[in-house]
Design a protein around this nucleic acid. Sequence first.
RNA 1: GGGCCGUUAGCUCAGUUGGCAGAGCACCUGACUUUUAAUCAGGGUGUCGCAGGUUCGAGACCUGCACGGCCUACCA
Length: 493
Amino acid sequence: MATRLERITKQRQQKLERIRALGVNPYPASYHRSHTAQQAIALVQQQEASGQKEASDVSLAGRVRANRAMGKISFVDIHDSSGKIQLYFNRESLDQTSLKLFKEIDIGDIIGARGWLFRTKTGEPTLEVADFTLLAKSLQPLPEKWHGLSNIDKRFRQRYLDLISNNEIKEIFQIRSQVIASVRHFLNQRGFIEVETPVLQPAAGGALAQPFTTHHHTLDQDFYLRIALELHLKRLIIGGLDKVYELGRTFRNEGISTKHNPEFTMLESYEAYADYRDVMKMLEEMVAKVCQQVLGTHRVKFGDEIINFKPPWPQLSLKEVIKKHSGIDFMQFPDADALRAEMLKLDIEVDPQKDRGRLVDELIATFVEPNLIQPTILVDYPVEMSPLAKTKADDNRLVERFEAFAGGLEIANAFTELNDPVEQRERFLKQQKQRHPKGEPVETIDQDFLLALEHGMPPSGGLGVGIDRLVMLFTNQHSIREVILFPQLKEKD
RNA sequence: GGGCCGUUAGCUCAGUUGGCAGAGCACCUGACUUUUAAUCAGGGUGUCGCAGGUUCGAGACCUGCACGGCCUACCA
């Protein structure tokens, strides 16, 4: 028994055969259009404004999205990336072959059309078609014209259908593109150079997250996909590239959620002879400028809130903000057990495996993060949470680090980089011990990075920004999957 | 990993107390020379996510599985 889909595709294949029988190639190599839909609409207005009598000769191309046939005439909507425009086909002005070809045109086909622009009596800018060309025959039906495609699963698995039938999706990715371009422009203007460092690494450093593993056959060696950009960019600072950044994909083999995708886009920048206070200023300025450039305002709608990115952003000490939202002053509990006991009093689940740094992190995530809607900077992080950051001169329990939050999302993490190679080695060893108290095998410490550090790294300020989350804020999307074209999904079947 | 919800035509969705599988769009045929989700007349269309079970009878009830969503957990 044939399904509807089989009937439809069969019908379309028959059309394809009839088209070929007419001597028409249903998949020609190229077609040169003179205008986009948007440009054509502007041209109609121009013609009218200048009182031009002779309509210009125009050729357009796009996907057929609607066909309203009325006897001897048809109104066909085509869409290109600039928008929609209506075509007017009159049976009497088409030759025999074109007439037969027109009968085989379906919604979903790509066509090119040449003719003259005018406005219908209802005011719709329209191309009166003198001749047209089939550019690609479609063999599959499109989703419904009114409701579009709303099945979330299908939207992501067949993102092209989502882009075709849901107009607002394109806008998200236009903004994403502009955000990235604007970030590049900002950093380039400030004298940063963009670099590319290895995705395949023998040791996955710069963050504490589960990496993906892979294998190189010729070298017969296992590699990790990078979980951060940090350690290679610092090697470049050591090498004398005083201002570097990389905008690239990083990979973390951990949970998937509305805030986490296994691969995500991160910006990291490092600047020699700067500290975290300099970086803070730069971040505020960068986010505000990018926002202004892309959206034309500092005020962004996010859910029920209006987020104002205009600097300076309020700064709070981690100690105070955690105390305010949870009642716990973590500085009063210098070891993990005492802090854990205090947290258990609040009736929240606490993983007994977690060290003190991770417990503080949990306090931030549970009590603080969801409340930070307006852009906010937190400072004075404990050293246990920050193995790559320099301690504060007046308190070696804290580091020169800040994190920035907005819309309940962590958007940036930055610190004055630890450049003492001996201390860095000790911090790595301590961290390794804490994480694996039973001495289980772990990925090796990046010895090559420590060697580099021993050659002397200038005091530097480093920054990491989650680009996907920034795009979420700028596009009012609350799931990271909505701002990634092809988010990770489990394979079906 | 845990909890809740969902999966019915190509798409968007109904489906009552367990009793013939439905609508709109799309598609096909016909009418219509300025339509805008065009309109009007007619037509065909199903592995009800998958596998079991209960029952005279299951789209519906039960069990398991798959995929997805939300919450939660994990997450520098």
